Simulated scan of single mutants.
Amino acid sequence: MLYLLNNSLEFPEPQFAEPDGLLAVGGDLRPDRLLAAYRRGIFPWYNDNSPILWWCPHPRLVLVPKDLHIAKSLRKVLRKQVFSIGFDTDFHGVIRLCAETRLDTGGTWITADMNRAYCRLFELGYAHCVEAWEDGELVGGIYGVAVGRAFFGESMFHLKPNASKVALVHLVRFLEHHGFHLIDCQQTTPHMLHFGATEWPRPSFLRALESATVLDHLAGPWHTCEMPDFQW
């Protein structure tokens, strides 16, 4: 059964999602609703030709920061410091390029409304990004949402080989350093499986999420936070 949202911030129980993970339709993207959704393991994913769709897939791909796997070839890139890394210094640029690079491959769910909504979350200290720079040009990055000590990955892009991978590794090490319990990868992909993410049953994910989201929130901007000693 597909649920139609109203002005209330209440969501149906995630276990009522359809087999593909679709749970509800409608509502809006105001910050309070988005944060309420993330705390319940629910996220929006739709395109310009549809209403807002809300999802809670089963199983759920999750990366525990301490379980990050870094391939030998990527470690070599990290040691060479090919890219300069920034935290929360160009969120607008990262989300814009995440959208543009997907348009080149057939479409994007980062609509204009989604862009505005997540930029607002960034202004409120909940959305964050990591950027990879080369010669002053933004060539890779990743963004997502942090609630308590859970991070919800939304999208990543690269204009140069390995740029998004390097940004991801720096993000995961940062999250591990600051005591984050998990990174929600949302959908299962070979790319994230390669980095050590594993599929969790929905009930296990929701229990872990409940514990993580009630912890103290690490507000932004993250470039002002203590950085780990990045050793590769």
Rank of each mutant, 00 (worst) to 15 (best):
residue 80 K to R: 11
residue 91 F to Q: 07
residue 17 A to N: 06
residue 97 L to Q: 14
residue 57 P to V: 05
residue 109 W to P: 02
residue 83 F to T: 04
residue 12 P to M: 07
residue 97 L to N: 12
residue 59 P to M: 10
residue 139 V to E: 06
residue 134 E to D: 09
residue 17 A to C: 07
residue 44 P to A: 05
residue 126 Y to P: 03
residue 126 Y to H: 14
residue 41 G to D: 04
residue 34 L to C: 03
residue 66 K to R: 15
residue 11 F to N: 04
residue 38 Y to F: 09
residue 103 L to H: 02
residue 2 L to N: 02
residue 3 Y to K: 03
residue 39 R to G: 01
residue 112 A to V: 11
residue 117 A to E: 13
residue 33 R to E: 06
residue 14 P to K: 07
residue 81 Q to F: 07
residue 71 A to R: 15
residue 9 L to N: 14
residue 116 R to M: 13
residue 110 I to G: 00
residue 41 G to L: 06
residue 73 S to F: 08
residue 27 G to R: 01
residue 84 S to K: 09
residue 37 A to M: 10
residue 68 L to D: 05
residue 98 C to R: 02
residue 41 G to R: 04
residue 35 L to Y: 10
residue 86 G to Q: 10
residue 46 Y to G: 00
residue 28 D to Q: 06
residue 111 T to I: 07
residue 77 V to I: 14
residue 2 L to C: 03
residue 9 L to Y: 06
residue 33 R to K: 09
residue 24 A to P: 11
residue 63 L to R: 01
residue 78 L to M: 05
residue 128 H to F: 11
residue 106 G to V: 12
residue 11 F to T: 04
residue 12 P to A: 05
residue 7 N to W: 10
residue 40 R to Q: 15
residue 117 A to Y: 08
residue 134 E to T: 06
residue 93 G to M: 06
residue 75 R to P: 01
residue 31 P to Y: 08
residue 66 K to Y: 08
residue 71 A to D: 15
residue 34 L to A: 01
residue 8 S to P: 09
residue 113 D to C: 02
residue 31 P to N: 10
residue 29 L to N: 03
residue 15 Q to W: 13
residue 101 T to Q: 13
residue 11 F to W: 12
residue 114 M to Y: 04
residue 94 V to H: 02
residue 45 W to M: 00
residue 32 D to N: 12
residue 118 Y to P: 01
residue 31 P to M: 11
residue 109 W to A: 00
residue 68 L to E: 08
residue 54 W to Q: 02
residue 30 R to N: 11
residue 98 C to G: 00
residue 28 D to T: 07
residue 69 H to R: 15
residue 74 L to F: 04
residue 86 G to W: 09
residue 92 H to A: 15
residue 95 I to D: 00
residue 127 A to N: 11
residue 24 A to S: 13
residue 117 A to V: 09
residue 49 N to H: 11
residue 50 S to C: 12
residue 17 A to P: 02
residue 139 V to I: 08
residue 58 H to I: 07
residue 129 C to T: 14
residue 58 H to Q: 15
residue 51 P to L: 01
residue 114 M to Q: 03
residue 25 V to R: 09
residue 28 D to N: 14
residue 128 H to D: 11
residue 107 G to I: 10
residue 134 E to P: 02
residue 49 N to K: 14
residue 6 N to W: 11
residue 2 L to K: 01
residue 44 P to K: 08
residue 84 S to M: 10
residue 66 K to H: 12
residue 104 D to S: 11
residue 62 V to K: 00
residue 24 A to N: 13
residue 61 L to V: 03
residue 14 P to F: 09
residue 18 E to F: 08
residue 127 A to W: 12
residue 116 R to C: 06
residue 132 A to E: 07
